[in-house]
């Protein structure tokens, strides 16, 4: 395969940032007006911007990530269908920039899941019952630490229990190795050339005006 492009990643242990709301869309994760950037810098400050800041621009003390004890936490626990809506990769960039390494939900929107995996951010899907169990543990002990182990594909809970999950096998290998898909694709050159020979372009964007 290809050489590492980022730190290999195996597991993370952290207390939890709980945001157990369903259908959190990427417009909430990072509102569109922050997408005018041409790089990835500064997105951590805009994460959940419209929930996180009041009209006068000051932090909303009620919103979870503004609580002082949340600083430095790297596991986010959310409701069902996380990351629906826009395809903006700025959403996982913003989460990662803030310090999130794994998001636990009962399901993820497809494009968000793809985008997250490509940035080494783990979308961990568990059953609704297991999600409820994690939420309950955190409700009882807000500082409880859990471990997300990508190698073993399990979430380990403070009560000694564990919950299995699966991550796309290919993406998992990439994250464990710190490699990326582009290296893999570039290595397909012979197949690509053969395909291109057999499939002339169906349309040209250059021709016709």
């Amino acid at each position: 395969m290809s050489t590492a492009v980022r730190e290999p990643f195996r597991e993370v242990t952290s207390a939890v940032v709980p945001l157990p709301r369903n259908d959190i869309d990427t417009d909430q994760i990072i509102p569109a007006r922050f997408l005018k950037t041409i790089n990835r810098a500064g997105l951590g400050e805009q994460l959940f911007h419209d929930w996180r800041y009041l009209a006068d621009g000051s932090p909303n003390p009620e919103f979870v990530i503004n609580r002082p004890e949340m600083a430095g936490r790297s596991v986010l626990v959310v409701g069902d269908n996380f990351g629906c809506g826009s395809s903006r990769e700025h959403a996982p960039w913003a989460l990662a920039a803030w310090g999130i390494r794994a998001v636990i939900s009962s399901s993820f929107a497809d494009i968000f899941r793809n985008n997250a995996l490509k940035n080494g951010l783990l979308p961990i899907a568990v059953s609704p019952e297991e999600l409820e169990r994690i939420v309950a543990i955190v409700r009882d002990d807000p500082d409880a630490e859990i471990t997300v182990d990508l190698e073993a594909q399990e979430v380990r809970l403070p009560d000694g229990g564990s919950i299995g999950f699966t991550v796309d096998s290919f993406a998992r290998r990439m994250i464990l190795d710190g490699t990326d898909e582009l290296g893999y694709l570039l290595a397909q050159e012979p197949a690509l050339e053969a395909y291109e020979r057999a499939h002339p372009p169906r349309v040209s964007t250059l021709a016709a005006e």
Binding site: S87, E89, N115, L182, Y184, E196
Partner: peptide, 20 residues
């Protein structure tokens, strides 16, 4: 279908995508 920016880079570079 829609893709993220990393995949945009993949398509620009290879005119392909890894897809299930």
């Amino acid at each position: 279908f829609g893709i993220g920016t990393t995949e945009v880079e993949h398509v620009l570079a290879t005119q392909t995508l890894l897809q299930r």
